[in-house]
Design a protein around this nucleic acid. Structure first.
Lengths: 118, 118
DNA sequence: TATAATTTTGAGAATGATTCCTAAAACAAG
DNA sequence: CTTGTTTTAGGAATCATTCTCAAAATTATA
């Protein structure tokens, strides 16, 4: 495990939110000034593939990365972009039963306008 | 309503699937050779905003446009990219009750590998 | 440990989807 | 028709992300 990959993983684990690659890059640069954006993307891809971190993909926005790897939904404010996690048990089961397929993963993003923005 | 916008809407309505902007552009060009890709994007944006068509946004792939505007989920084959619609009633309600918010819309993409690809 | 084989890096170029810019064309009133 | 508004085509620009590749780091091996 390289220093870079370790640093990136630590940043995600210690963050309380859902960072973008660019945000992770900025935080990483503070501790490792010569790290390259490509290195961040490369390692994020590997960490996702290894299921060590989660990926949140929201329409029209850059991807966000999540320390939580268990399946859950995201409530997204269409005004400020804030992301809140939520857990609706059995949705995966319901999709699997309804369609008779094996669901590998899912993205569930519900859009709203948060109290601060209203 | 311009000819271009009308054509784009017709293409989406008569398609049996979920076309990308590029696919819509190609189909439009067959009937209107000078139409520009920018015009397609511009009108797709307007049609989405007016809620006349639906938008499907899948991680890492170009957006797809849907004639159906009623909320529903999409089952996506991670191997060939095929998209199948599904309807799970009351998910919106459940999210609203669980989090005590008003959900404007949601994206629900379940990933799997279809029979043809397995 | 020294050395060879493998992997990863940094820096920047390349890509792909989408948006933006602008003068000309189309359209909508009056 | 004439004037004012909207939309267009075409191309440049942008943004997130991936790719390229020689050099550096890491790991395996003798």
């Amino acid at each position: 495990m390289t220093k870079q990959k370790l640093l990136i993983k630590k940043i995600i684990e210690s963050a309380n939110g859902h960072l973008t690659a660019e945000e992770i890059y900025q935080l990483a640069k503070a501790q490792m000034p010569h790290i390259a954006l490509g290195t961040v993307y490369r390692n994020l891809g590997k960490l996702c593939e290894a299921n060590e971190i989660g990926l949140i993909s929201v329409s029209g926005k850059p991807d966000h990365y999540d320390k939580s790897v268990i399946a859950h939904g995201h409530l997204i404010c269409d005004s400020c972009g804030k992301i809140v996690d939520f857990h609706l048990e059995d949705i995966k089961d319901r999709v699997e039963k309804l369609l008779d397929v094996e669901v590998i993963s899912y993205d569930f993003n519900a859009h709203y306008v948060c109290d601060d923005c209203k």
